[in-house]
Amino acid sequence: MKKFAFIFAGQGSQNIGMGKDFYENFSAATLLLNDACNNTGIDYKELLFTQNDNLDKTEFTQPAIVLNSLMSYLAFSDFIKAKPEFSLGHSLGEFTALAVSGAFSFLDAIRLVNLRGKFMQEACMGKDAGMMVVLGLSDEVVEEICKNAQNEGLKIYAANYNCDGQIVVAGVRADLASYESKFKEAGAKRAMLLNMSVASHCPILEPASNRLAGELEGILSTDFAPVVSNVNAKIYTDKSEALVLLKEQLIKPVYYKQSIKNYESKVDCFIELGAATLKGINKKITDKPTYSVTDMASLEEVVKILEER
């Protein structure tokens, strides 16, 4: 059996119909979705499987993505009993990684990220929050531009280190728009505002970070299987570390590419469960292959690949 790591996508990976194959074909996935409906009062069958406007609203998007990823995990586990060397997620995906690693129950994870989405939305309310993707600049140049903006009293922060030449910055939307030309003058191939009303992984979310921390104490397990932190790109395995790192996760950048680079030598491949978002990013970071499990056909294909000798 090939050595593998699980990876989980975050907000932006959602689509109508996700998880339906697994809900219809695996009793554990069916039970989880039904229990999630009863536990949160959200109709996840309608949210995931029918056309609606709620799937793109942060408080619904986040639990929907985590639920879909967990259903994918349950389907995968029906075929493959081997455990990953470690798990990691991009932003929201870290909470899915924690759930499959035993840090808290699946239902607690879904409930928690529903609150996370609400807390984020409320923290950004009235603050004209937004995010911008910047392509074609080094980390150092983007960081220097952000520092200059902050020295001018503007709220612009490096938020997601996706891969070389791709960083997402977060802050006040008007500030970001005013600095679009600065990024382009520095050589950016593109600097484009994203269709988002929150500013993830920056100080604007400090109120949300504090509220989320208050929810964690009662649900975290004492220890769990290895998870790579977005905050420092290092593995953590216990509650005391998790309480510190997850409080910081909303206000610190996501070191995704650094996480992959730090631990790629431990695995033969990466398995993205529930989406195919990180697969493309990984191609720009590592030579190790990434396989995505999003439906029955891709599940069967990945199982076959993993069992090849």
Rank of each mutant, 00 (worst) to 15 (best):
K182C: 13
P84R: 10
F95S: 00
D164V: 10
E152V: 03
S72E: 08
A158F: 07
Q121G: 05
L92P: 00
G89H: 08
K155L: 13
L154R: 13
N195L: 12
L137S: 02
G165N: 11
D164W: 04
S178E: 14
Y179N: 14
K147P: 02
K155T: 13
K189R: 14
G126T: 06
A177Y: 08
A103L: 10
G171D: 04
R116Q: 12
A191W: 05
A159T: 04
F104E: 05
A177T: 13
G126Y: 07
Q51E: 15
L112E: 03
A75T: 06
N160T: 09
F86I: 10
D175T: 03
K155F: 11
M125I: 08
M196E: 09
K155E: 14
T96P: 11
A123R: 02
D108G: 10
Y179Q: 13
E143W: 04
A170C: 14
A158S: 15
K184D: 08
D139F: 13
K57P: 00
S91T: 08
D175M: 03
I145D: 04
F183P: 00
D56I: 13
T50G: 04
E152F: 08
A99H: 01
A82F: 05
F95T: 00
I156P: 04
T61P: 09
L98M: 15
A99E: 01
R111Y: 12
K189W: 05
M120A: 11
G153C: 11
D56A: 12
M192F: 07
G126V: 04
A174E: 15
I80L: 10
A64I: 07
N148T: 11
K182T: 15
S91A: 09
Y73R: 00
N162Y: 04
A177M: 14
I65K: 00
Y161W: 09
C124D: 08
D53G: 01
G130W: 00
K182S: 15
Q51L: 11
G136N: 10
L67R: 02
E152W: 04
G89V: 08
G153N: 12
V172L: 05
Q121H: 12
